[in-house]
Amino acid sequence: MLEIEGLSVEVEGKGIVHDISVNVDIGETLVLFGPNGSGKTTLLMAIMGFPRYRVTKGRIVFKGQDITHLPVDERARMGIGILFQRPPVVRGVKMREMVRACLGEREDGYVIDEMAQRLNLVDLLDREVNYGFSGGEVKRSELLQLMAQSPEFILLDEPDSGVDLVNISLVGEMINELLQEDRMRSRTKSGLIITHTGHILDYVNADRACVLLYGGIWCRGNPRQILSSIKTHGYEGCAVCQK
């Protein structure tokens, strides 16, 4: 579904991601581990197409189409969605309007309330987007928007950061639902999760994992094995490990 071929990305003239190649198949969830500053978020932002993250080499192919130079909104309309780690506050725009915009032509007021109820967000529907939200509320608000958007490919930027224990299982449950992880077969949704701590893997199933270090893919393998190794040896252990 998503093919990244020899991708290099720079931010404000500084190279952050170097020559990365990675694929995610239909119905597959890939988890990307990496310490702070390794380039995880830069990779995600480049896949989504934010202009600040400039692709200097390589290409991004989604559903067989080269999207390397498509604007963000076109990528979203093609079926890519993103859960932001620290989304901006959008003063004046109410959550309900935002969710309605995500629903697009599938707009249905009843659905909004129903989804909000499941995420415990009914009270936030008439608040301005992300204004004064707690860490858990931000994540649940992001998930509500993604549920409304219903993308085929979901980029999840540190879905476990800043979320307390009460919220994390709900967040995990919703991610599983978005990624159809509850289905045994015929999954059509795919995901790329980036995580620093790996906590989210206690709640979300992932099929494959990579470790990103110094802007490049360091190793690939089974998510639980890699996480176990990171827990034991830290990312320092990864750094000395054979690439």
Binding site: P71, V72, A76, V90, A101, Q149
Partner: peptide, 8 residues
């Protein structure tokens, strides 16, 4: 850009 990422 945040709103654009939702398809607007």
């Amino acid at each position: 850009e945040y709103l654009m990422a939702r398809g607007l």
